[in-house]
Design a binder for these strands. Structure first.
Length: 199
DNA sequence: GGAGCGATGTCCT
DNA sequence: GGACATCGCTCCG
């Protein structure tokens, strides 16, 4: 297998729709004590800072969303529906909002640990582990208190993205999920035909 | 396998 | 007070 390299800040310095598509096929890696958890990114959504009514940043900077206004390559983790976390990575230069929501992984390493964190049997269907933004965070042990605002561009924070040379093939552009405004814009991107994309 | 729905905390108007 | 970038359960086919 080709040697993996950690994606650096310049990777995230671009508009969210472009970063989103380029993240497909990369590995999201979480180091949990000595265990390495990883999955291939198969589904993402782009949220613009400006002119995107569906984005958390649409109404301006607040305490919750300030990470998205900061420099690129930082984790924005928020709590939703009273019980789930969602993980984004900030894009665009410092001062300009924008981010990519990570929606689904095809698990590749640490599946038993992911199942345990998800409260499932260790031989559970891998599709139940990280297919969906809330599931993804639970499978990797990502919570707002521990991960919101951390830098994902160095290998030391315990959370980063790696490029192992995998080529995702055809990318599908679809409407975003779970939003009511700007619901028609095709800013959800998936690896076409991948079975680990959320429903 | 799909539609309907309740659970539940935080944020902003 | 209402909305919310979700999930898993039930019920039905």
């Amino acid at each position: 297998m080709a040697k993996s390299r950690v994606l650096t800040r310049d990777f995230y310095l671009e508009p969210p729709d472009r970063v989103a598509q380029r993240l497909l096929g990369k590995l999201l890696v979480r180091r949990l004590e000595s265990v390495r958890l990883a999955g291939r990114i198969v589904e993402v959504e782009a949220y613009f800072g400006f002119g995107d009514p569906a984005a958390h940043t649409f109404a301006g900077k607040t305490l919750r969303n300030e990470v998205l206004f900061g420099p690129p390559g930082f984790a924005y983790v928020y709590f939703i529906y009273g019980m789930h976390f969602c993980l984004n990575i900030s894009c665009e230069p410092d001062g300009q909002a924008g981010g990519v929501l990570l929606r689904a992984l095809e698990p590749t390493e640490g599946l038993r640990t992911m199942a345990r964190l998800r409260g499932l049997a260790s031989d559970a269907n891998p599709r139940l582990l990280a297919s969906g933004p809330g599931r993804l965070c639970q499978a990797l042990g990502i919570e707002r208190e521990t991960h919101n605002g951390i830098d994902v561009t160095n290998g030391r924070s315990g959370l980063h993205v790696e490029d192992d040379g995998f080529e995702p093939g055809e990318i599908a552009a679809l409407p975003r999920v779970g939003i009511s405004k700007a619901a028609d814009r095709p800013l959800r991107f998936t690896i076409a035909g991948n079975r680990f994309v959320s429903r």
